[in-house]
Computed example of a mutant assay.
Amino acid sequence: MSENKGLPKSLLYLMAFGAGLIVANNYYNQPLLGLMARSFQVSESEVSNIPLFTQVGYAFGLLFLIPLGDKFNTKKLILIDFILIILSLLIAAIAPSLVVLIIASFLIGFTSVIPQFFVPMAAQLANPNQRGKAIGVVMSGLLIGILGSRFMSGFVGEYFGWRSMYYIAALAVALYWGLIYYKLPAITSEFKGTYKELMTSLWFYFKSDSNLRLASFRGALGFAGFSAFWTTLVFLLEDVFNYGSGIAGTFGVLGICGALAANVMGKLSDRINKNKVILIAIFIMIAAWLVFYFSTASIIGLIIGVILLDMGLQSLHITNQSIILSGKSEAGNRINTIYMVIYFIGGALGTITGAQLWEMFHWKGVAALGILYTLLILIFHLLYKKPITQ
């Protein structure tokens, strides 16, 4: 950003690119679930444990790794973590059984938390009146990575097999490691206590910050619906439309249109009341789920719903993070840890419940579940929101 000497535009976009590249590791599996199920000759519900354990692993990585950014040199932590990511991806690529792939998926999720170092880093380096914009840029990269990963893995899986995707991902991560080794600044920490004291402080921030608790709850429920959708979409496309993993992945590209709203909403959250932005995001998500409910046999409806769902969720997510990262820069990693752990617990819940609703009621059951989650966000937001002027 030209306005901020502490956060050059080149570094901001390098972090945004890295956020997308690394978080993509958590989502390559979703369009490949059908291929994996056939490869190991297991059911759809059994193979859904792969994205479930990836999300659980991510939540554990957030809980136990990200707080370390407030205690140690963040750059060194990131460089070490990259090596662990590469090893996890290679284990997935050679997995001889579903059990090994599930374990590897947990490790991929556990190690692929680097984007959550980048978000508080961007907030810390940015000028206060540019914080939402900086978070929005990094999150746009992250979200494009999430959605673009589905297109990439769907294409690679269909033409080269699902294992090839993990080899490609390992190579890409290794190349990016070289870039950040030279470009990423070393940020010293302020926390001088023990690891136990560091982890104990998480509870202090959670119980003392009502905005953090509400933002975490909103994010978790939003991501629950999002995960339910992406876990079951590939089954709908295969069962109803006879489409393979390539088409399932293409829906990720469509979602990028909605994800780009993250950058816009980041700027908007610096200028207008954040509670208003949150309400707009909630109603967009409700509209998306209503479209999905009536789109069991309509590709056009699914396309519209994907764009709306991503737009709504990412707008909600960006605004949540802008709220919780305003101030307390010395604890930014821990604040973000609390939010993101609860966020991904919501994602795991959505994966489990989405798979179960699919087994029992198919697509309409999944859509009804998404409507329920989003209505709960609205109810709790209206009941517990606090006045926010910035």
Rank of each mutant, 00 (worst) to 15 (best):
Q130M: 15
A123P: 04
T188A: 14
Q124Y: 13
G136A: 03
S216C: 04
G161W: 10
G178A: 08
Q130F: 12
Q124D: 13
E158A: 12
G136P: 02
N211R: 14
S208Q: 11
G225R: 00
R213A: 05
E197N: 08
T231H: 00
R218P: 07
S164M: 12
E158P: 05
V137H: 03
F191E: 11
Q124L: 12
G222K: 00
P185H: 08
I135P: 05
P115G: 04
V119D: 00
F191K: 03
L237I: 01
Q130R: 13
L125N: 02
Q116V: 08
A123W: 13
Y159M: 09
G148T: 10
L237G: 05
F191R: 02
N211S: 15
E197Q: 15
I144Q: 05
F223K: 00
L221A: 01
S201V: 11
A215C: 12
F235L: 09
F206E: 07
G145D: 02
N211E: 14
A220K: 00
T188E: 14
L236W: 06
L212P: 06
F217N: 00
L184I: 08
I168C: 09
F160Q: 13
Y205W: 11
F223C: 07
Y166P: 08
Y181P: 08
A174Y: 02
A228L: 08
I187D: 08
M165R: 11
G219N: 06
